[in-house]
Amino acid sequence: MARVKIYSTARCPICDKTKTLLNKWKIPYEEAMVDADHSALREMSEITQGARTVPQIAIDGKWIGGFSELTMLHMDDELDEFVEA
């Protein structure tokens, strides 16, 4: 299965909602707390080409965007393909 990584902060309601959806869809993920880990912040900046908002989501190191992009992939029935690829 593809590796999903979510970059988030401790006080981000959309991050919490994103993690809830990933759990609901039974998609395992790794979380990187960019407010507590400077290396995670640098990694997020590199992967996203400088995004400054959270959540940011990567699958196998490829940036897909944030909460809206994740839900769009799911609504378009592309998330399963993307995660399984």
Rank of each mutant, 00 (worst) to 15 (best):
M1Y: 06
R3K: 15
V4H: 05
V4G: 02
V4S: 00
K5L: 03
K5H: 06
I6V: 15
I6R: 06
T9G: 12
T9I: 10
T9P: 06
T9D: 07
T9C: 05
A10Y: 04
A10V: 06
A10S: 14
A10R: 08
R11N: 08
R11G: 04
R11C: 01
R11P: 01
C12P: 07
P13E: 12
P13S: 15
P13L: 13
I14Y: 14
C15M: 08
C15D: 08
C15Q: 12
D16T: 09
K17E: 13
K17S: 07
K17C: 02
K17T: 14
T18G: 10
T18D: 10
T18E: 11
T18C: 09
K19W: 09
T20H: 07
T20G: 07
T20M: 10
T20Q: 10
L21T: 01
L21F: 08
L21I: 00
L21Q: 05
L22Q: 05
K24D: 08
W25V: 00
K26F: 03
K26C: 01
K26A: 05
I27D: 04
P28K: 02
E30F: 05
E30Q: 13
E31S: 09
A32Y: 13
V34D: 02
V34M: 09
V34T: 08
D35V: 08
A36F: 04
D37Y: 09
D37R: 10
H38N: 14
H38Q: 15
H38G: 13
S39W: 11
R42S: 15
R42P: 05
R42E: 15
E43Y: 10
S45I: 07
S45V: 06
E46P: 04
E46A: 15
I47F: 12
T48D: 12
T48E: 13
T48K: 11
T48I: 14
Q49C: 11
G50I: 14
A51L: 12
R52N: 11
R52F: 12
R52K: 13
T53N: 10
V54H: 02
V54L: 03
V54W: 02
V54F: 03
I57W: 03
A58V: 12
I59Q: 10
I59C: 14
I59P: 13
G61N: 15
K62V: 15
K62P: 05
W63G: 04
I64M: 08
I64S: 06
I64P: 04
G65H: 06
G65Y: 03
G66P: 05
G66C: 10
F67E: 03
S68G: 07
E69M: 07
T71E: 08
M72F: 02
M72I: 06
L73R: 02
L73G: 01
H74S: 03
M75T: 06
M75W: 04
D76I: 00
D76P: 00
D77I: 00
D77R: 04
D77V: 01
E78N: 08
L79Y: 00
L79N: 00
E81S: 01
E81D: 00
F82D: 01
V83E: 01
E84C: 04
